Simulated scan of single mutants.
Amino acid sequence: MHHRELGGVGSVTEVGLGTWNIGGDWGDVSAEAGRETVRTALDAGVDFLDTADVYGDGRSERHIRHVIDERNNRDEVTVATKAGRRLDPHTADGYTAENLERFVDRSRENLGAATLDLLQLHCPPTDVYYEPDVFDALADLRAREKIANYGVSVERVEEGLKALEYPGVETVQVVFNPFRQRPAELLFEEANRRDVGVIVRVPLASGLLTGTIGRDAEFPENDHRNFNRDGDAFDVGETFAGVPLDVGVDAVEALEPHVPEEMSLAQFTLRWILDFDAVSTVIPGSTTPEHVESNVAAADFDPLDHRLHGRVRDVYEDQVAEHVHQRW
């Protein structure tokens, strides 16, 4: 597995593992299936795991701790978690030093870690990025060695650009894939210029970019692809990358003829993402061991040629951009 620098955090594998799937909001996933997903990723060479304190109310964090403890390899794995979404209501004024420390302490317990490798603000309201006190609180947590590094997970490019103004921010996590291309413009350029790591989430657009979801697809009641299609629970950009399902299926059908025979559509997508130098790591999630291994293998393919990148850009501009480009 190839490695890239993740800001000041250190070197991590190009393909990591996102663990939203094994925590909640993706239908029923047993504890053993969740843990086996983490084991499969580690066995495949992954050394970067991304989680959050609200994924199954800490379930995802606890699965990671269980596997790391049984392997006794904590020093070999970088674990990034997130904080802030436990606030109810989730408002900017809740991002106080006291609340952040409380969330960090809970994640430290869930993960069995004295110091969190990387703590990210979890898609806070935009106003938070204009509050220096919030970032001062993160710096204080780092000074007291409760966290080793801090960064942000953002919904909008504007938020990422604002976060980059704070010198302590080491990473920016953002939705990026062939159906959400705006970050490749100014955000990637600025992150690269400032040596800030970029973590790409929702790379497969909630499964759309696997080519296995049709227009009439049905999902369990407790799967966000059912209950959040219109943004009823959280930002709609987290579900199918914000692309209406029928539009996304049409765009997938336009992409598929350009995928090289030796690659799946998911591998093609991940390879496309990794072709952007500003990207430090991409974090697809899955609960299927075969899919985890296939995702990891995407890093072994050669970069896509300019012709294929042009085809992806054409599909985006012709069919998708009007639905997402200016929104996020």
Score class of each variant (00 low, 15 high):
E5S: 15
G7I: 09
T13H: 07
V15D: 08
G16S: 02
N21T: 15
N21K: 10
G27R: 06
S30A: 14
T37C: 13
V38F: 13
A41E: 01
A44I: 06
A44E: 14
D47A: 06
D47L: 03
F48D: 10
F48H: 14
L49G: 08
D50M: 10
D50P: 04
T51F: 05
A52D: 04
A52L: 03
R62N: 05
R62F: 05
R65Q: 10
N72M: 07
N72V: 08
D75C: 02
E76M: 05
T78V: 15
V79S: 00
K82I: 01
A83M: 07
R85C: 00
T91S: 13
T91P: 01
T91Q: 13
T96H: 05
T96Y: 06
E101G: 00
D105P: 04
D105S: 14
R108I: 02
G112L: 13
L118S: 07
H122C: 08
P125S: 12
V128T: 12
Y129I: 03
D133L: 05
F135G: 01
D136H: 05
A137F: 06
R142D: 13
Y150H: 12
G151K: 04
E158G: 02
E158V: 11
L161I: 13
A163H: 11
Y166S: 05
Y166V: 03
Y166L: 07
P167T: 06
E170V: 00
T171K: 05
V172Y: 11
Q173T: 12
V174C: 05
F176C: 09
F179Q: 02
P183Y: 08
P183G: 12
A184V: 10
E185M: 10
L186N: 13
E189S: 12
E190Q: 15
L204R: 04
T210F: 11
T210L: 03
G211Y: 08
T212V: 04
R215Q: 11
E218L: 09
F219P: 08
E221R: 14
E221G: 03
N226C: 09
G231A: 07
D232Y: 01
F234V: 01
V236T: 03
A241Q: 02
A241S: 15
G242W: 02
V243R: 06
D246S: 13
G248K: 04
A251I: 01
A251D: 01
E256M: 14
P257L: 08
P260M: 05
S264F: 08
R271K: 06
F276R: 10
V279S: 06
S280K: 03
T281A: 13
I283S: 02
S286C: 12
T287M: 11
E290I: 03
H291C: 01
V296C: 08
A299D: 14
H306P: 00
H306R: 15
R307C: 00
L308A: 02
G310T: 06
R313I: 00
D314V: 02
D318C: 06
E322F: 04
E322T: 15
V324I: 13
Q326C: 03
W328A: 07
